[in-house]
C-alpha cells in the first residue's frame, strides 16, 4: 500500500521536478539563445495565449482540426463499413486503398495549397485527406473481421439489416474503428500545423513561423509549448472517449482472460 502511494507520488513528482529544474536553471546563467529561461517563456505565454491571441490563432487552428477530423470520421466510418460488407469489391480495390494509407500525407499539403488556395477549406480538405485512410481501412477490416458465427446467427434469426448494423456489426467493429480514429487524430494535428507553417495568415503554426522569422525564440517556445499542451489534451480527451465507448469491450475482454 505504502509502496503504491510512493510510486504514484514518484509519477507526479518527476515531471514537476523537471519543470522546476528548467525554471531554476533559467535563473542561473545556464540559458542559451535557443533555450531561454522558462520564466521568460511563461511570461510570453501568459501575454500571448491567456487569452490575447486565442481568438485570432488558436480558434482557427482548432476549427481546422475539428472540421477536418469530423469529416474524415463520418466519411471513413461510412465508407469503411460499407466496403467491409462487400468482400469482392473490397478485395478488388484493396491495393489502391493500401497505397493511399501508406502515402505520407504531409507530401500532399503543397499540392492542396496550390490546388485550393490558402483557406479554411484547404485545411479541412487536407486534414480529411490525411485522417480518412486510417479510419476507413480500420473500419473496413473490422467489419470484414466480424465473427462469422455471430454474423450468420444474426442473419438466420432474420434480424432486420438496420438492427444488424447498429447492434451487431458496429459494436463488434468499434474497438478497431476507435483505434483508427486515434491514429487519425494525431495525423490531423500534425497536418494542420504543417500547412500553417508552410503558408498561412493565421493559426498557431503561423505564429511560430513568424516568431522564427523575427528570431523571437521565447515566443517560438511559447507556441511550441502550446501545441504540446493541445496535443496532450486532445489525446487525454480521446482516451476518455475511448474509455466510455469501449467499457463493455474491456469487461468482456477481462473475463475472457480470467
Amino acid at each position: 500500500m505504502m509502496r503504491g502511494i510512493s510510486l504514484h507520488a514518484l509519477e507526479v513528482s518527476v515531471p514537476v521536478g523537471l519543470v522546476a529544474l528548467w525554471w531554476y536553471l533559467g535563473d542561473t546563467a545556464l540559458t542559451s539563445f535557443y533555450f531561454p529561461a522558462l520564466r521568460d517563456i511563461w511570461a510570453t505565454f501568459r501575454a500571448t495565449w491567456l487569452f490575447a491571441r486565442v481568438g485570432s490563432d488558436v480558434v482557427p487552428t482548432m476549427t481546422g482540426i475539428v472540421l477536418g477530423y469530423a469529416t474524415s470520421v463520418v466519411l471513413g466510418v461510412t465508407l469503411g463499413v460499407t466496403l467491409g460488407g462487400f468482400p469482392r469489391v473490397n478485395e478488388f480495390i484493396s491495393p489502391l486503398l493500401e497505397f493511399f494509407r501508406a502515402l505520407p500525407a504531409i507530401a500532399a499539403v503543397p499540392i492542396f495549397i496550390v490546388l485550393i488556395g490558402v483557406s479554411l477549406k484547404m485545411e479541412v480538405a487536407v486534414v480529411t485527406f490525411a485522417a480518412l485512410w486510417p479510419i476507413l481501412l480500420n473500419a473496413r477490416d473490422a467489419v470484414a473481421g466480424v465473427d462469422p458465427v455471430v454474423r450468420d446467427t444474426s442473419r438466420s434469426y432474420r434480424i432486420r439489416p438496420v438492427d444488424r448494423l447498429l447492434r451487431v456489426t458496429l459494436p463488434s467493429a468499434s474497438p478497431q474503428i476507435v483505434a483508427g480514429m486515434r491514429v487519425a487524430l494525431t495525423q490531423s494535428i500534425v497536418i494542420i500545423i504543417v500547412s500553417e507553417l508552410i503558408v498561412s495568415a493565421r493559426g498557431i503554426g503561423h505564429y511560430i513561423q513568424t516568431a522564427q522569422w523575427d528570431f523571437d525564440i521565447t515566443a517560438m517556445w511559447s507556441g511550441l509549448i502550446l501545441i504540446g499542451l493541445i496535443g496532450f489534451a486532445l489525446s487525454k480527451l480521446f482516451q476518455a472517449f475511448e474509455y466510455k465507448v469501449l467499457t463493455w469491450h474491456r469487461g468482456l475482454h477481462g473475463k475472457a482472460q480470467r
Binding site: I106, V190, Q209, I217, W221, L224, I227
Partner: peptide
C-alpha cells in the same frame, strides 16, 4: 507532442 512543431527551432 507532435514532433513536427520542433522544425522551426
Amino acid at each position: 507532442i507532435p514532433s513536427i512543431v520542433l522544425v522551426p527551432l
